[in-house]
Design a protein around this nucleic acid. Structure first.
Lengths: 217, 217
DNA sequence: GAAGGTGTCCTCCCTAAGGAGGAGAAGAGT
DNA sequence: ACTCTTCTCCTCCTTAGGGAGGACACCTTC
């Protein structure tokens, strides 16, 4: 395990707590982000305990570097304040967990073992916020399609999906084995029902409502 | 606390485990989703332990109902298999936590207390998946756009973004304060560079590559 | 100063797309 | 039986979109 925190006092505290656990070894201590990256690469610890706020290089970008190098190293972020910005940034950077620094010792120890096992840990308060935010970001698979799409007939919705794949009317006709005229009729009805001008806007709406999603193509 | 699970055996198991905790009372047991909603409203437990898969009404929609009624009740979802779909759905529904049913007893107890305190709990394996997914959902400024988009000039990419909003050439021209001819030139170049046939396919590509994302419109 | 890239604009031309309007067949509901 | 909806297909017409090809201005870079 690698300790990365600029506060000497805090490092000492961690060493005290973790020293009682025979299976957890502190193989090094870094006092800033740049040093943390260097030591992670050299010492290959299972886990890096990384403070977010550090001189020279903050914990988030340091995490990004470590993860980008594809080292067999998991990063557990420690924060004094559970600010969303840090958490989201660290998440993107590829951190395996986040804990507030005020966690009880046993929880910290348990968290380190969990992260070392390749799973994730997030402190409860932070998790709460994260989930709230996550919920608003996520498309809802179970949700009914808001109002508008409901007015479409099955066939029209089907055509819309084909349109949202980037297919021309002729291609859709071939795919559904109907005439191009029929496709044009469906497309026309679909557009007026949805109040759209052209198929381009239909594609946008399909993505925005979640009728189709990136990656499902 | 309210137990909602259609398996009698499982309910008994939970009662055994939770019975040893003096501060945790099971105030009721529901055997399906509809019943769970009704009992939650009537008994107002601090926490509902809810199975995802239940007859009549699955745990996710039941959770949605409970949350929608703004009851002072937190829902902790239990899953046998940590399938993403359930987790995402439950999240959207407003659940406060998710645990796999194979958690150790102490963890379950701790989780219930955490959820009762208004914070969130997610089992480590599930959390890992969730974080991975979350990370991909978040815009990552550091990621290069995969190959193709890189060949576009700034202006062409800018035009593509406008196209992906569903705007016509004339509208784009107005938005960028250039002539429509210019826009057509950019669109044409953009299409040939990306090997696309028309603007519809351009929209699809914009969404699929993450150049634009659902919700950012 | 020449060359390449970019951004701006033009004309000429052709086709896919979309609107209007109508029509027949099959099924569900009254 | 009758109506409503959906799906199917048609014609006629207009236009936005896209391809080809060229032109000019402004940068950097060599």
């Amino acid at each position: 395990m690698l300790l990365a925190d600029d506060q000497q006092l805090l490092r000492t505290g961690f060493k005290l707590v973790l020293g009682t656990e025979p299976d957890l070894d502190i193989v090094g201590e870094a006092t800033d982000g740049a040093e943390a990256v260097e030591m992670a690469r050299r010492l290959l610890p299972d886990v890096v305990l990384m403070d977010v706020r550090m001189p020279r290089r903050d914990g988030v970008t340091a995490t990004r570097d470590i993860v980008a190098q594809k080292l067999p190293v998991r990063v557990l972020i420690l924060t004094t304040f559970d600010l969303d910005d840090y958490v989201v940034g660290a998440l993107r950077a590829g951190a395996s967990g986040f804990l507030a620094k005020d966690v009880p010792a046993e929880e910290l120890v348990a968290a380190i073992r969990t992260v070392a096992a390749g799973e994730a840990v997030v402190g409860p308060r932070i998790l709460k916020r994260l989930l709230d935010r996550f919920a608003t970001l996520l498309p809802d698979p179970a949700a009914e399609f808001p109002n508008q799409l409901a007015s479409l007939t099955d066939r029209e919705r089907e055509v819309l999906i084909q349109v949202a794949k980037g297919l021309s009317n002729a291609e859709i006709a071939a795919a559904l084995t109907v005439s191009e005229t029929t496709v044009k009729t469906h497309v026309g009805h679909m557009l007026t029902k949805l109040g759209l001008r052209d198929r381009v806007q239909a594609v946008v709406l399909a993505y925005e409502t979640g009728l189709v999603r990136p990656g499902s193509a």
